[in-house]
Amino acid sequence: MAMDRPILLIEDNPDDEALTLRAFGKNGITNPVVIARDGVEAIDYLNGTGTHAGRDLTVMPVLILLDLKLPRIDGLEVLRRIRAGEHTALLPVVVLTTSRETRDLQQAYRLGANSYIRKPVDYERFIQVVGQLGVYWLTINETTETAAHGPY
């Protein structure tokens, strides 16, 4: 069930991480949240390698929230690797970034992002945006897992 599966938050900014977690709570999003603070950690989590070696790969994120400006491996490269992976290619990826660069937006969609959202600067607006994300991606959107197993 989608509510039991984790959300993978790929975010290196501790303030944005805390804000996102607070927004989940305020919007009643109760999924467990796995945090990757750089691109390498994100890829390791998804592939069950490195610090996440031995992780149960049958439990994949219901949603990936991906910042673009990440250390070690940037967000666009993380997205490219997600889409190239056999067991990760169909996972929903929402780019959640401060980038205002048109080329970042275009490249994210070229690489297969499901959505591209610029982080609102205003706290209340951010809470609202995360709530809308949760409603859509966690309850309304049909996933490949739902299609394979039915809605119940």
Rank of each mutant, 00 (worst) to 15 (best):
Ala84Leu: 02
Pro61Tyr: 00
Val33Asp: 09
Ala2Asn: 14
Asp104Gln: 01
Thr143Asp: 15
Asp56Leu: 10
Tyr116His: 05
Gln106Ile: 15
Thr139Asn: 06
Ala2Gly: 08
Arg125His: 11
Tyr116Asn: 03
Arg37Gly: 11
Asp67Arg: 00
Tyr123Phe: 09
Thr102Phe: 00
Ala113Cys: 09
Glu77Asp: 14
Ile117Arg: 02
Asp38His: 14
Gly39Tyr: 05
Leu66Asp: 11
Asn31Thr: 01
Ala84Thr: 04
Ile10Asp: 12
Thr51Ile: 13
Ile64His: 04
Ile73Asp: 02
Asp38Arg: 06
Val62Gly: 09
Ser115Cys: 14
Val121Ser: 14
Lys119Met: 10
Gln107Phe: 01
Asn31Leu: 02
Ala148Glu: 12
Ile35Gln: 02
Met3Cys: 13
Asp122Cys: 07
Glu86Thr: 13
Thr97Ile: 00
Leu63Gln: 07
Arg22His: 08
Gln132His: 12
Ala2Pro: 15
Ala108Pro: 11
Phe126Asp: 13
His87Lys: 14
Val95Met: 00
Leu96Gln: 06
Phe24Val: 05
Glu124His: 09
Arg118Asp: 11
Gly50Thr: 08
Tyr45Asn: 08
Lys26Gln: 15
Gly48Tyr: 11
Val33Ser: 09
Gly39Met: 07
Val33Met: 07
Leu138Cys: 12
His149Ile: 06
Val78Leu: 06
Glu17Leu: 15
Lys119Asn: 10
Asp67Asn: 04
Ala53Lys: 15
Val95Trp: 00
Leu111Gln: 04
Ala113Val: 10
Ala23Ser: 15
Asp4Thr: 06
Leu9Ser: 04
Glu41Gln: 05
Thr98Trp: 01
Glu124Trp: 05
Asn27Trp: 09
Gly50Phe: 07
Gly54Phe: 11
Ile117Ser: 03
Tyr116Ile: 05
Gly85Leu: 03
Arg80Lys: 13
Lys26Val: 14
Leu70Tyr: 07
Ala42Gly: 12
Ala147Glu: 11
Thr97Gly: 05
Arg125Pro: 00
Thr51Met: 09
Thr144Tyr: 15
Leu90Tyr: 10
Tyr116Ser: 07
Leu138Ile: 13
Glu142Val: 15
Pro32Met: 12
Thr97Pro: 07
His52Val: 03
Arg5Glu: 15
Gly28Ala: 12
Ala18Ser: 15
Glu145Asp: 14
Asn27Gln: 12
Gly48Val: 13
Arg118Asn: 15
Ile64Asn: 03
Leu111Glu: 06
Lys26Thr: 11
Val135Leu: 14
Ile35Leu: 09
Asp12His: 07
Gln106Phe: 11
Thr146Lys: 10
Val40Glu: 08
Asp4Gln: 07
Val78Thr: 03
Lys69Tyr: 11
Leu9Phe: 02
Thr49Trp: 06
Glu77Tyr: 00
Arg125Lys: 12
